[in-house]
């Protein structure tokens, strides 16, 4: 079963296919600790978020306002040494507000492109479901292609490029829920949830979070992050592990309890995320526990139960799926 707390995945089997440089995992641990000092009591979500970024995926944080979604995104960007832009999505947001505009430059006598906030390494799309579908799709296209086209010119985005989107639960007023096809572009969706008693007390007693955030130092450089992403791709996934991923995906396609089965893209997402999780554990190969750990984040927004009577959160769906499929 998936570990239910934010404890560090313990390495039970340290005989690795390829050694992971010790300092690399230490760096990751530093990021976890630093972000954890801002967002209290959410170590598991922080790990998932980092795993998502290591797997080169975009992250969707869904929860009610005020639980620290923006704070998490900001702390992550800073700790990973990436530059950060925030777009507040509103219902009158236009695609140009995201991508940028060309403005006539009198000195040069021509139009000059003023890049929008998308040309940043970490883009925090705040309350992404408050914008109209038109603005949403501008962002989501950039996410998929890692490039934008403006005024007939295609511009590449900077590397690494992450979108961390936050979203209010879609049953709140004034939202345009993301369609399934666009949800699929996010590698993971996580919920933060309320802090527990202890964490909340620490929050109330501690300093102002904004001051803390301003004082954060990067724990690694962008180059090191890219190297880590590359390492994550090299994590060994044995035939037995692929069997397990396929068994999970196959089950969702056969069982009648989901509106749609998981797509091949979802299967890839599970695999990538599991590799990143293994990397964070300092292991050179992925094990079924890695898959189970990332599954709630990866499939929660992709699997819709067929009898949508009430809202079922992603963790429930994934937990059920894990229970139903035996590890081959």
């Amino acid at each position: 079963m998936a570990p239910d707390t934010g404890r560090k995945p313990r390495d039970v089997a340290n005989s690795t296919g390829r050694p992971i440089p010790r300092n690399m995992t230490q760096q990751v641990e530093k990021v976890v600790a630093q972000v954890g000092s801002i967002i209290l009591g959410k170590a598991r979500q922080i790990r998932l978020a980092i795993a998502c970024l290591l797997a080169r995926g975009h992250l969707l944080i869904e929860d009610i306002p005020g639980v620290g979604k923006t704070m998490l995104a900001h702390a992550l960007a800073t700790s990973l040494g990436l530059d950060f832009q925030r777009i507040q999505f509103t219902s009158d947001l236009l695609p140009a507000d995201i991508i940028g505009v060309s403005i006539y430059d009198r000195e040069n006598g021509g139009f000059r492109f003023h890049p929008g906030p998308i040309f940043s390494q970490v883009v925090l799309a705040d309350e992404v479901n408050r914008a109209t579908p038109k603005a949403q799709s501008a962002l989501l296209e950039a996410m998929e292609e890692h490039q934008v086209t403006a005024e007939g010119e295609t511009r590449r985005l900077r590397q690494p490029f992450f979108v961390i989107a936050t979203q209010n639960p879609s049953y709140q007023v004034g939202t345009f829920p993301l369609p399934e096809s666009q949800l699929d572009r996010f590698l993971m969706r996580i919920h933060l949830g309320y802090p527990d008693n202890e964490a909340e007390r620490a929050l109330l007693q501690g300093e102002d979070r904004r001051d803390l955030l301003a004082g954060l130092d990067p724990c690694m450089t962008a180059q090191e992050l890219i190297a880590l992403q590359h390492d994550a791709q090299q994590i060994h996934a044995s035939a037995a592990l692929l069997d397990y991923v396929q068994a999970l995906v196959g089950h969702t396609r056969r069982a009648a309890e989901y509106v749609n089965g998981l797509s091949p893209r979802a299967a890839l997402a599970v695999l990538y995320a599991a590799r990143a999780w293994a990397l964070m554990a300092g292991r050179g190969h992925a094990v079924p526990e890695d898959v189970q750990a990332v599954l709630p984040g990866v499939v929660g927004h992709r699997l819709i139960p067929a009898d949508e009577t009430g809202r079922i959160n992603g963790a429930d769906v994934a937990a059920r799926l894990i229970r139903q499929v035996a590890i081959p």
């Binding site: 039970v12 089997a13 060994h236 190969h285």
Partner: peptide, 28 residues
């Protein structure tokens, strides 16, 4: 891990078997 909690006496043997199994089945 679950077994180790109820039968701490078996820990070394179980850890050895599990480590070897995971390495062979999921490792390279």
């Amino acid at each position: 891990r679950r077994i180790e909690q109820s039968r701490p006496d078996l820990t070394p043997a179980i850890a050895a078997i599990t480590r070897l199994y995971v390495a062979l089945r999921y490792g390279a």
